[in-house]
């Protein structure tokens, strides 16, 4: 895959050679910008209420935590009741659940997924490993502090956190969103350089543009 993403010289049918940079074609390179809340407070509050009651999770099980997601969406716990549902594509999701440890390889995909999500978007760290490395604190392949790489709105502690704890997490996240405090996307845009530097420090194989939408 990587070779295909490298810039290369292509010869056109008329014999003229020109350079093709697939990455430029595939991705948008616009930096993220800060999108301030609506000026009228009551409107923003109303929007925030709607956002909080409609949490669409990206179906990306990054680690062990994914195992407790299934009970969450099935009869026993039925998180649909609380406005939570899965979306299979990052475009339509607003909530990225980092379910446990992130290997650097997954971190790269998680960043991409996050950047493809539309703001306002939220990140919830699941389990100890997102807080301080968890039991993989000495592993060469997992990150230790999630908030170095992505803006995190809430942590749910546990190894695994049970579905009940996740539900509690959703409730708490809703409170945060309603209070207008979940501005992770803007924070990401503001401290973009810092986040990118951290990300690039651990992802050595950075074969993606700095910002892909």
């Amino acid at each position: 895959m990587k070779d295909e993403l490298k810039p290369r010289i292509v010869k056109g049918p008329d014999g003229i050679e020109f350079e093709v940079d697939p990455l430029r074609d595939y991705y948008c390179e616009a930096s993220p910008s800060v999108h301030p809340p609506v000026y009228v407070k009551i409107v923003e509050d109303f929007f925030n209420w709607a956002r909080s009651e409609s949490l669409w999770i990206l179906g990306f099980g990054t680690g062990c935590g994914a195992i407790e997601m299934r009970p969450l969406m099935t009869p026993r716990f039925d998180a649909y009741r609380f406005g939570v549902q899965w979306r299979p594509t990052p475009r339509q999701a607003n909530l990225l659940m980092i379910s446990g440890y992130l290997s650097t390889k997954t971190l790269k995909r998680a960043i991409r997924s996050y950047e493809q999500m539309q703001s306002p978007k939220y990140v919830v760290g699941l389990g100890s490993c997102t807080i301080n490395g968890g039991m993989y604190w000495d592993s060469y392949n997992t990150i230790k502090k999630l908030d170095e790489y992505l803006p995190v709105d809430l942590y749910i502690v546990g190894c695994m956190p049970r579905p009940e704890a996740l539900l509690q997490g959703f409730e708490d996240l809703k409170q945060i969103i309603r209070a207008g405090k979940a501005e992770g996307a803007n924070q990401y845009a503001e401290k973009f350089e810092w986040y990118k530097a951290n990300q690039k420090k651990v992802i050595h194989d950075w074969d993606m543009p700095d910002y892909n939408w």
Binding site: I131, N132, G133, W137, D138, S139, Y140, T142, I143, K144, K145, E148, N198, K201, V202
Partner: peptide, 13 residues
């Protein structure tokens, strides 16, 4: 040494 690598590579709290 995985611990050493982890400490140098990844930020800890």
């Amino acid at each position: 040494d995985t611990l050493k690598y982890a400490q140098e590579e990844f930020a800890e709290r």
